[in-house]
Design a protein around this nucleic acid. Structure first.
Lengths: 220, 220
DNA sequence: AATTACATGTGAATTGCTTCACAAGAAATA
DNA sequence: TATTTCTTGTGAAGCAATTCACATGTAATT
């Protein structure tokens, strides 16, 4: 094991999130016809400091040209490589309720290389139905179908009451990354990455901010 | 202006987010029949340290009993008060596409006191249609209808291309808190709170984590 | 009533993240 | 070619968040 490999483990979550933001902004800059961009300009668009932008990038290499800035297309490519989105990820959505079926049509996922290719539900009325060209499978066959379809990530949009059972199934199918929308703390083995999307949390932050005149505004 | 008021401005965003998590877990503990809970148990459920839990709470007062822990119902109430969710917030959803209409049926919002009471769209086919008992209004009348309905927060689920125009309208209507789902950096006046919900970001984090064996697992 | 066990609340220490400040280098200009 | 201008990349400093460690206090037990 090299020192370089260990280095990557020290990257903070905030840095990764900011890389996502840079990537999106670089895509926009590209569309707007910019060839190069400075850390100053990038920072302005993200409401960050130029130093923050440069420091974030410096963890992964030196991609800029002194006096000139960064080549938009090149930096976009580098960040895609760092984030692992310079490829297609095969994703399954488990739970085809309101949120689940909305996500199937969410174009931003596709744009970033996240391709939803499998859908699962336990409701007989939903099984066999079609969403954006994908047929909903019975959750009973989850393990086999996930393996056969080479699914690498799962988006979980089932009721909180059954979420843990579904996670257990998904883990058994060998999936190592789960994005959970159920408002509950799930257990996964240490080699599985679990992220929680909690939409109420953001409204609660807004509620707190209004009530307390909280200062760090317009963030995230 | 007292010193106490200024103190609140020093609370970190992470602390607020953790309060949201504590609130949800306390609701669950209540349902499970627990009368009291220790910082140790709370921490275990959130995958945090007990010190973190106690420190977070200490910013707002001392709610526990030494040797015993916290009264579940009481602490839940205190946190609701701190977050400002011991009341009903009147919310409008602007943009009744896939995500927007999914959120109208999202029960977790209602459970936390976030009541969606107005819907807006610019599509003639959607205007006048009914979602969970709410009729979709024409976005043309946004300012007047938002004022008349005493809307305090807006959830923005419109395409990125029109998001800034919609925000401008919403701000003109006097709304001070916006939760934006469009993947774009919006401008708002300094007295308006804007939060961005970026679902791709979480998938990108998972992608990075898998590719780099990133260590801080199972967080958030 | 005294003792033991337990858990809070909080300064202090530590760790981690952000910003500063500047040397180094590249491009544009004269 | 020399000079000026601009911007990166990065150690060091500064700031913020987390964890430690323990004094303080309550409840349960004997």
């Amino acid at each position: 094991m090299t020192t370089d490999t260990n280095l990557k483990k020290r990257i903070s979550e905030s840095t990764i999130h900011r890389l996502s933001m840079y990537f999106r902004t670089l895509s926009l800059l590209e569309k707007e016809g910019f060839d190069t961009v400075s850390s100053k300009e990038l920072a302005k668009r993200e409401k960050l400091t130029p130093a923050q932008v440069r420091k974030d990038l410096s963890f992964f290499g030196s991609f800029g040209t002194r006096g000139l800035g960064y080549d938009v297309g090149e930096l976009k490519g580098k960040i895609a490589e760092i984030l692992g989105i310079n490829r297609v990820w095969r994703i399954a959505v488990v739970g085809i309720g309101n949120i689940g079926s909305a996500l199937v049509s969410y174009k931003e996922f596709t744009r970033q290389g996240f391709h939803i290719v499998k859908l699962f539900d336990n409701d007989q009325r939903k099984i066999g139905s079609n969403h954006k060209g994908i047929t909903v499978s019975d959750i009973q066959n989850l393990e086999k179908e996930i393996r056969d379809a080479n699914i690498e990530m799962v988006i979980l949009t089932v009721p909180a009451t059954v979420a843990q059972y579904m996670v257990d199934d998904v883990v058994r199918a060998g999936v190592k990354a789960i994005l959970n929308f159920a408002p509950i703390n799930l257990k996964v083995p240490p080699d599985v990455y679990l992220r929680n999307e909690n939409m109420s949390m953001e409204l609660e932050y807004l509620s707190f901010a209004i009530m307390n005149n909280h200062t760090p505004k317009n963030v995230r």
